[in-house]
Design a protein around this nucleic acid. Structure first.
Lengths: 97, 97
DNA sequence: ACGTCCAATGCTGTTCCGGCATGACGCGGC
DNA sequence: GCCGCGTCATGCCGGAACAGCATTGGACGT
């Protein structure tokens, strides 16, 4: 389970469509499809129902979506917080000279 | 920024020592050292002060540690929650036959 | 029955990554 | 002052992981 896989999962969940999610993530469809399969394999359960129109979220997928968004948001907050702390302390990237 | 890197970071932060953290993570010291360097590079600021005894957490590092623990805990919860939801719904891994 | 649209798979070149050996640096003992 | 020890960092290499291309397999609509 990697952050990249979670980003892929959220994109597919929101688009309901692997190809469209791939465009959004600036990758191609096959690796994105594999990301989802890898997640499903790791968790031991399918996350989407494959329907003719694309991918429909299963209950397990909805459960994951909730946590995945939280995780991604937390990663974002962590990044910003550390960068702010770095600026506040006079960091390596921004020596006030 | 990957989950593996965050695990590495937390281990080093808690041990204050790359070599010992490496033992705990069952990897060797060089890749672990590189994980920390990669994080510092990505965030644009050092996270540890290198002291003769090992690695001392900087304020930026403490800020990250807080969020890193939260993220890792959330990943754990996500994994368990989905697996439980899968069992509750009659999942692929456990067909009741 | 055929064409269309979708995800999944086979394959290949590249990139990433871990481990081994070694280097660079600082400290302490002598 | 010199040497030895302990620490993290770096050069290198072999294997695994990954993205993209081309293609397949399957389902629906017409």
């Amino acid at each position: 389970m990697s952050i990249t896989h979670l980003q892929s999962f959220v994109a597919v969940a929101e688009e309901g469509h692997v190809g469209r999610a791939a465009l959004r993530l600036h990758i191609t469809q096959p690796p994105l499809s594999r990301h989802i399969l890898a997640l499903e394999d790791e968790l031991g359960t399918p996350l989407f129902e494959r329907v003719p129109k694309g991918m429909r979220l299963l209950p397990t997928g909805e459960a994951l979506l909730h946590h995945a968004r939280r995780i991604l948001a937390e990663v974002d907050v962590a990044t910003r917080t550390v960068r702010e702390a770095a600026q506040g302390s006079g960091a390596a990237s921004k020596p006030p000279a």
